[in-house]
Simulated assay, not measured.
Amino acid sequence: MKVLMLAVAVSATVASMPAQARQGDVLLRMRAIMVAPNEKSGSVLPGFPGEKVKVDNSVMPEIDITYMVTDHIGFELIAATTKHTASGITGTTGSIGKLASTWVLPPTLTVQYHPIVEGSVRPYVGAGVNYTLFYSEKASDALEGAVGSTNVHMSDSFGWALQAGLDIDINDRMFVNLDVKYIDMDTTARLSTTSAGVQRVRVHLDPIVAGAGIGMRF
């Protein structure tokens, strides 16, 4: 009887153990993210001085992996891609509306600090670097209707990133994750048009990336 009671107690203790992140652990997270640009646009030059663009938000799934090199320090790499639309704000480009769309692939590597090793709620902060690739750029039908056939190219971006997050235990292996990042991201869009020549606009995107999801410790 005592042996049975001891086994039950041990099982209960193991079941209640938090999903602690220890040296050598791999944390795999799957999140839904919203990428919200905080864009600051220059003028569309040389043809449309004073006319600027805005960029919409995007919601997509994301996966990331963290390797704990010590009990407190981890390296995280995220993989996700989102689609965004750029639109004119005022003047001629504003009357056109949607100008172009692009897919964005922003692999980001951060070094995280996890101050709490044991506990069911574990915050972390991080900082790192980002390289953003813009691909499958496409002019809108409205833009091509106004200025003719248009080729769109957006330059890639290299910048820094900041991060803060929280892991909340479900059981000894799984946890809920909340995460937010700020990414330094800039691009120059070049629009080669039939009737308006080559137009360029510099945009500081600098998005906030907010996510929530589920994680597992291996």
Rank of each mutant, 00 (worst) to 15 (best):
D64A: 13
S95K: 10
L133E: 06
T70A: 02
D71Q: 09
L109C: 03
M60D: 15
S41H: 00
A100G: 03
I116P: 01
Y131F: 14
H84Q: 15
F75I: 14
Y67D: 07
T70V: 06
S136I: 01
T70S: 13
A80G: 01
G47D: 03
V55E: 02
F75W: 14
I96P: 00
V44S: 10
N57T: 15
Y113V: 10
I73A: 06
I96R: 04
A127C: 05
T82C: 07
W103D: 14
T132R: 12
T108M: 05
I96E: 11
Y67T: 07
V104A: 02
H114Y: 14
V69C: 03
K98A: 14
P123Q: 09
P49D: 00
P49C: 12
V104Y: 04
T102Y: 13
D64E: 13
N130Q: 14
N57G: 08
S58G: 12
S87T: 11
G128K: 05
I116C: 07
A79N: 08
S43V: 12
P106I: 04
H72G: 04
G42D: 11
L77E: 06
M68Y: 06
A80E: 01
S58T: 08
L77R: 04
S58P: 11
E137G: 15
G126M: 07
T93Q: 07
T102V: 13
P46S: 11
E118I: 07
N130P: 03
I63R: 05
A127H: 05
S43N: 08
P61K: 10
A127N: 09
R122C: 12
I63E: 08
Y67F: 14
S41I: 00
L99W: 01
F75N: 01
V104K: 00
P49A: 14
H84C: 08
L133M: 15
T92E: 11
E118C: 06
E62C: 11
V55G: 05
H114V: 09
W103T: 13
N130K: 07
Y124S: 02
T85E: 12
H114M: 09
Y67K: 09
A80P: 00
K98Y: 04
G94I: 00
Y67C: 06
L99I: 14
G94E: 00
G47T: 01
F134T: 00
D71T: 04
